[in-house]
Design a protein around this nucleic acid. Structure first.
Lengths: 235, 235
DNA sequence: GTCAGTCCTTGACGAGTGTCAATTCTGCGG
DNA sequence: CCGCAGAATTGACACTCGTCAAGGACTGAC
């Protein structure tokens, strides 16, 4: 009944880096065990503290993994795109989700029982290496989140813009043009602040002649200054 | 020449949970490859960003893994006691330390070339499972660090005291007696703040009749209030 | 007992940031 | 061209927290 979905799911499972060394037959077994689900933007996929019997692979769209503080403000741990694993840590470590997950865009997820992961690791030992590499990368990524939180808002903004300029920066006559990639309100939330403070931070960087704001793009004049502000080694 | 050290090192390697399923012969090989080093309190073991060719196992004492912000303030990721692994992530993931490490007490460390870890994983596949469990636990621990950073200082203090009350709390007539476990200056640093603010936070909890300060111990009257303040679900 | 050194506490102040409210900007339909 | 709704900006203010400075308490040595 869901043939279209399941083909896409197979591809997503195939490209998931957790088991990129697995055989196609193993992927077939995974796909057979998977439950595919499509959800609109904003939908909740997992709630911090809930019991976790399954883990997921993103088939399409983008999911956001985050913590929500007492006042409702949120901190983003990571965003996961097509082929990425969700809640793998919950499946491996404990029975509970250590974070919330929601749909940053409309997403399709293939959910798998955690047992299939254990079976896969048992039958194809090479999978373990990929898993270790993925987890180690996740640890490094989380330390980066902590470093970001240690910065003030202009620093976090600079760090974000610097990383984004490497990814989608486009050299023009006036400077390096970078789109913010999302509405300013969303960007503010993902930097752990509010639109007012983001606006002031952008204003401050503009006053310092580091960049200029053009709607939902920025023109960067001094990439080095961004790197300096964002790395935490200023002055 | 270092017989005493190396016996202690062997025991530490034997108790390290990364390879608790390994054979004694494998531990012998590890011990033979290890370089043992003793350092005084405060010594630097690793610097964020440096190239990492080795990883370590704590033989005795306690090491602190932390990030240092631009202003010198530090955030503690974890503390590692005897039998714990240091810089394992750097060995596995990239070539560089993602954090600083120093000696919280005088420590003795057994340093191992990262290749020995790979050899061990290759010859004893079960090691991989232990490694995965360790890394997954590390991820969970780091998300807890992020949650802590999302709280204000009284919240962080409450979280620390709550966790500590579970570990070393001692019921007395006057309330639950908990020792802070370290000088207040060190506690302040490990909570990511300064002694002055810690002192005020303790004063505030005292004013709210949640606890009382007795030198380097606290008497807790209302454990539930601590749990509430520290979990981020107050009011 | 006294003295010195260390740790802890308290007060005053400023920087950064969230909140609330008012204003301006932008895009779009009538 | 006008008007409207949502987004973005700006200003005023309170609160947390780090810094600096001063004062107090505890410990150990002589």
């Amino acid at each position: 009944m869901h043939e279209g979905h399941e083909d896409a799911a197979w591809s997503a499972l195939r490209t998931c880096r957790l088991w990129h060394t697995a055989t196609d037959e193993a992927i077939d077994r995974l796909a057979a065990a998977a439950t595919v689900e499509s959800l609109p933007r904003g939908a909740t996929l997992a709630v911090e503290g809930d019991a976790a019997g399954t883990f997921g692979v993103v088939v399409s769209g983008r999911a956001r993994v985050f913590h929500r503080g007492a006042d409702g403000r949120s901190i983003t741990y990571e965003t996961v795109d097509s082929g990425g694993a969700l809640a793998a840590v919950a499946a491996l470590a404990g029975g509970r989700y250590p974070a919330n997950i929601d749909a940053a865009t409309p997403v399709t997820i293939a959910w798998l029982p955690r047992e299939t992961l254990f079976e896969l690791m048992a039958t194809e030992p090479k999978i373990s290496s990929a898993m270790i590499a993925d987890l180690a990368g996740r640890v490094v990524n989380l330390t980066s989140v902590v470093q970001t939180l240690a910065l003030d808002v202009p620093g976090r903004l600079a760090r974000y813009l610097f990383q984004r300029s490497l990814a989608v920066g486009e050299a023009t006559a006036g400077g390096l043009r970078v789109s913010l990639g999302m509405p300013k309100a969303d960007l503010a939330a993902s930097l752990g602040t509010v639109p007012e403070t983001l606006s002031r931070a952008l204003g401050r960087l503009r006053d310092e002649r580091i960049l200029d704001v053009r709607g939902s793009d920025v023109l960067i004049f001094d990439v080095g200054a961004l790197a300096r502000l964002g790395s935490g080694y200023e002055e």
